[in-house]
Design a protein around this nucleic acid. Structure first.
Lengths: 158, 158
DNA sequence: TTTAATGCAAAAGATTTGCAACATG
DNA sequence: CATGTTGCAAATCTTTTGCATTAAA
């Protein structure tokens, strides 16, 4: 699943715009690292991005890749899958449910919705993606606590 | 958000059933670790579970907590939030989209659905959970590749 | 030329493993 | 009692940081 050339151009242009606007230097490393993510349809991890960038720029270091990825993330140019910088979290609730994640304090609350459970994906999606086993809706936002207080519940969370 | 006593009893009973059936020893540590997750409504990470279990069993060690959590996960008694054992993965696709995750080979594919984008959560959910910013649907299953081949594309993925 | 960014090496953090001692069934 | 499980300590793996050097604007 490769990204279209035109889309990549668009992304690179946006990258440049944001860097200019924020006074972020467009280094060789940053351009290559961003381009690598922009070109990848497979949601790579830091190590994989490092390996791929190194093919073009053998002197690049892994710590630069990490620094750059989080910078790009903070700039809103890329996104993280899963829990981002957080470690794995666990739950014993096995009944089908969904999650509300507070982006401010990190709290995750379960909620139930039969509408969501019964939601049927378009055939096109089912056919192209494969055999579906479970579905899960994730809502991101700000929890009532953090909405009320100006200071987030847990300020260490980012 | 505490779990009801009755629900916890039910979970503990299920835990016991599975252990019996699979010939897994019900050690003090496993009971306490499972109970801790079963009682927690806050989706704790390994370290937090370790701290809480240690209050009741000061000699428990962090590596036992890790071993037990993954065991419970493999037994289907608990679930992981986020990417599980995997590291953070990144994407540059900023347009609203959803993910199909193949549980067999780990591939993650984007898909689009205006129905999902326009899906409005019940008011009750919105009110109790807070201010909503983004939503994301995650579908788990087996990708066409893995359905076709008996052997998964990437057998190292678990 | 000024300031920020990189690469290196080392530190820190998180998770896993080998193994002797121990507890469970 | 036999075997699987634990705790410890050490190893491993991943990510971050301090600092002198280098490169971008």
């Amino acid at each position: 699943m490769e990204i279209e050339k035109q889309e990549i151009e668009k992304r690179m242009a946006h990258f440049e715009t944001i860097c200019r606007k924020r006074g972020i230097k467009m280094t060789q490393q940053r351009v290559l690292i961003y381009r690598e993510v922009a070109c990848s349809g497979d949601h790579p991890d830091a190590e994989k991005i490092f390996q791929r960038v190194r093919e073009r720029l053998p002197t690049v270091s892994l710590d630069t890749v990490y620094r750059t990825l989080w910078l790009l993330n903070d700039l809103g140019l890329i996104k993280t899958l899963g829990l981002g910088r957080e470690r794995s979290r666990f739950e014993a609730n096995l009944s089908g449910h969904h999650h509300f994640v507070c982006d401010q304090c990190g709290i995750i609350r379960d909620f139930y919705s039969t509408e969501l459970d019964n939601f049927t994906l378009p055939d096109a999606v089912v056919d192209s993606q494969g055999k579906i086993k479970t579905t899960h809706f994730e809502v991101h936002g700000v929890c009532p606590n953090c909405v009320a207080e100006k200071t987030p519940q847990n300020s260490s969370y980012q």
